[in-house]
Amino acid sequence: MIKIKKQKENFWQKLNIPSILWSMILFALIIGLYWAISYWRHIDNPQDKIMPSFTQISQGIKFSLSTDETGQIPLLIDTYYSLSRLFIGLFFSLLISLTLGICMGFFKVFNKIFNKFITYFGKIPPLALLPILFIITGLGESTKILLIIIGLTPVLTLNVYMKIKNLPPEHFVKAITLGSKPLNTIKHIILPQILPSVLNSLRINLLSAWMFLIAAESISAQAGLGYRIFLVRRYLAMDIIIPYVLWIALISFFLDISLKILIKNKYPWFNPHNHYVKENSK
């Protein structure tokens, strides 16, 4: 009889720490490291602004959450403006990408006209276009939203197009044999099949959207999270900048998780790892 030798577990395998705990440990380490450096800096200089103590940060948070001279709470009003711009930008990026991507996937002439153009346009770093956008469209809201749209639309459009191209042609032919009209096929067969994958792509590109938004707000705005960070930077107000950055990270994390949950619950058949469908389980 052949004896199967049991593999010896090494120290890390025995320890078996779950991934989430590792993340928490690493975050705790960073916070601990920050606290230690900040503590030493404050022994030398109790007025140090570069690495504020936790007490200073909590005062910064209190300040951000208290009403200013106009009667508004800065953190809330900045969040409201930033999220409004972000959501409008994401909505239009998604709308344009779906419309254009579906047209490119369905009609050869659209693909011929737009494919190469979008591929090359997508190579231009959107932030390089920011000064041009400010000159052309002015310093208003539209520029900030437009930058998100310009940044995300090429990526999302090509994603929609590729997803349609990857759908089995059998699905289209079968829809015709079942009597489905082209618009119905798009509505009931194509759109629902590509939507989770496109939402997943949107989720991955959220970080870029934030980057474009903060860059645009830093140059010209009256309110917004990016605007505030770059405004108080002039006074080295790290006690406000750090909570704002953490707040942006928290919103980002929340949006990411929400989209993940939405995709998982609304599209249980979708497997984000192979970007198509779950394999037959039997």
Partner: peptide, 29 residues
């Protein structure tokens, strides 16, 4: 054309529709 139906070996059903929805799709078009 709708006069001629097909049953494939590969991708026989729409993956995003439940069994009942797959059938109703064939019924309502």
């Amino acid at each position: 054309s709708p006069h001629c139906g097909i049953v494939y070996q590969k991708y026989p059903l729409y993956p995003h529709l439940t069994v009942k929805e797959n059938i109703i799709f064939g019924l309502t078009q």
